[in-house]
Amino acid sequence: MAVTSADLIRAFGAIADRMTAERDALCALDGEIGDGDHGIGMALGFGAVREALDGLDGGASPTDVLNTAARSFLSSVGASTGPLYATALMRAAAAVKGKDGLEDADAAAIVAAMAEGIAHRGKAEIGQKTMLDAWGPAAEAAKSATGSFAQVLAAAAEAAHRGAEGTAGMQASMGRAARLGERSLGHRDPGAVSAAMIVGVLAETLG
């Protein structure tokens, strides 16, 4: 098997580290078109995820890990990222239900389930300048990629990064920045930027 529960737990720890390191940069990005707290929520949420996963017993399945991550993220964050990532992680948990470990094909299943969960909960579509503009392309790239777990995630990470950069050219029509209209142009969406970071860390750590 390509990826174990322990690998997933390590990956969440690495995401927590990255979000803590990028906290102020994400807040500054959010301050340009939102309320300036995105980095706080992401660092807090994945910090809580790491803590909750530390308490998980050794026999936990990938589904247990992802569901525990979902619950701890939601109850520590709230905000809009809480329900979005909680729903995404619960969908990912459901996508690999019954498995003791993950195979290469599960990489695309997890990324696609995350994207679907976010789209469902946020009622968002591609092109509205949200985190879905990173997760959506990541899911598409993962689904059409071939190769190992790591290769699929690398393709997803590359697409998520391009998607996040592309949000600078979008006018927001969803979420808080939508009220800015044209003034949202020229700024990257902080939720898309942090999403690209998450997919990037997954690709680095689950390779």
Binding site: I40, G78, A79
Partner: peptide, 9 residues
């Protein structure tokens, strides 16, 4: 909720 953030459910 946290500062400027909705409470969770």
């Amino acid at each position: 909720g946290n500062v400027f953030a909705s409470p969770p459910p």
